[in-house]
Amino acid sequence: MAILVEMRKEELMIEQPEVNKEEVYQTKDLNLWYGDNHALKHINLDIFENEITAIIGPSGCGKSTFIKTLNRMVELVPAVKTSGEIYYRGRNIFDKNYEVEELRTRVGMVFQKPNPFPKSIYDNIAYGPRIHGIKDKKILDEIVEKSLRGAAIWDEVKDRLKENAYGLSGGQQQRLCIARCLAIEPDVILMDEPTSALDPISTLKVEELIQELRKNFSIIIVTHNMQQAARISYKTAFFLNGEVIEYDQTNKIFSTPSDKRTEDYITGRFG
């Protein structure tokens, strides 16, 4: 791919452990403004498939904004302006012909707070397939079971699929939201601090689940919790004031960061 050649990899200092991995996302000089506030500055990142990429940084550093730009959810905020390019699987997502709905069908998202719909567990999972026109009851049943199994919550809910999703605990709700996301078999899953509203035990379960999902999905996770990034991710990007300070393999970032600011953040001097 031509785009691959153009990318200036040496700037990003990525060590490639496996040669045959493809980029799912490439951002090129991405800038974003909320009104006059320059929230993302000259972001150049390559994100690879079947990896867990963690994005860390202090509050307000732009990490949430960045992940929401990847599926263009950021455009729901009024007065947002962007420049630069984001290539998803080689296509610029800001391209006029690229339907945002198509992008979001390929790229799933899990939010900070569990946000199931006020519907039954079954209807929550079936929502995605249904809106995209899949109505066959047998196929839907299969998708629901497979997605719930995939999100490691099947055994807990299989006897109450018709009950309202709000009867579940917070941790279960978040795994349900992950299952809802799996139901349309996305290529990439974006996770925006998915455990920030959960207790430690639920957090652990979700982390285990994310590890498991890595085998089949590319996962980009924003986290406030550095230990979490260290535990689950393969690569980590450190954001500060809307800029990428450092992007590298997680063990390198956490053991021998090359930038002083990264080291300061990781050792808890600020943030």
Binding site: T105, R106, P129, H132, G133, I134, I139, I143, A183, I184, E185, D187
Partner: peptide, 8 residues
């Protein structure tokens, strides 16, 4: 599922 969605 993605193939079904595309077809629909």
């Amino acid at each position: 599922v993605q193939e079904m969605i595309a077809k629909k």
